[in-house]
Amino acid sequence: MTMKDELKYKHLAEQAAREHRRERKIRTIAFLKRKSAAAALLVLVLITLAAVFAPLVAPYPDQGKGAVNLGERLQPLSGKHLLGTDTFGRDILSRLVYGARVSIFGGLFIVCAAALIGVPLGLWAGYSEGAPGVVISRIGEILISFPAVLIAIAITTVIGAGLTSAVIALIIPWWPWYARIIQGEVLRLKRMLFVEAAQMLGYGKSYILFRHLLPNIMRTVMVMMLLDFGPAIISIGLLGFLGLGTQPPNADWGLMVWEGAPNLMQQPWIAISPGAAMFILVMAFNIFGDNLQDYLDG
């Protein structure tokens, strides 16, 4: 190849890269223009900001953290308390804001931890067929059939109830899902020619794993994680409802629903508010995740 040809091909390659970037920008703008995606994203951002800046956002931060206000028990919605008060007189809106912290960061932790454990294990299991793959598969199968509630109880009796034990209890049966799917993906990609080619060129196992397989899988993992936030938040809520999560007087959406259940008929807002908050947050994640999937597929 002459110097002139080299330059020409380099120029063509750069041109192609530029066009690719431009195309991506067009698609991103189209994606953000979709109303549902934008709305969902807005909700997510707002709730996250509220959670992060809870002391500033909540009208009654102390009550949000648990301080009682027995003078104003069971108040309905009013100007002073936008979502009313609970059985201890605490402002429900403040409690919701503080509870958002548990849901969002707890959910984040669970999903990230599960992915951090499951993805490498899945990669390894899928790539090195044989014993490691089968062992991880079996362990995963057993863990998946274990109800998290049971594990939560076990951990609770050992280290005491609280958010930590709930999170650990959820991560244990959670990571096998990632491991299995990644394992499947690796098995599928392994059969593709580019891996065979790399092997033939003499590249080592870990090099192939990280340089070639991982980038292809990243996209799948990202979408999996995003769509997983909803179930994670619900699971934290489920355990909280049973009293296995954050302990009173701290605010946790699941716990709040349980606290509000006895007064469901007379003062429904106590239980409905946290439940609705969970629903809205999870729904936002799901809608955003769906749109993201369409964007990545398209």
Binding site: G230, I234, G237, L238, F241, G254, V257, W258, A261, L264, M265, P268, A271, I272, G275, A276, M278, F279, V282, M283, N286, I287, D290
Partner: peptide, 26 residues
């Protein structure tokens, strides 16, 4: 259908149960 499906999957089950009690019983 998409909306209903998403909503159904996003509702925590204990919340739905309590909601149903509130609406259909109370």
């Amino acid at each position: 259908v998409n909306m209903i499906g998403s909503a159904a999957v996003s509702l925590p089950i204990f919340f739905l149960a309590l909601l149903l009690q509130l609406v259909f019983f109370n």
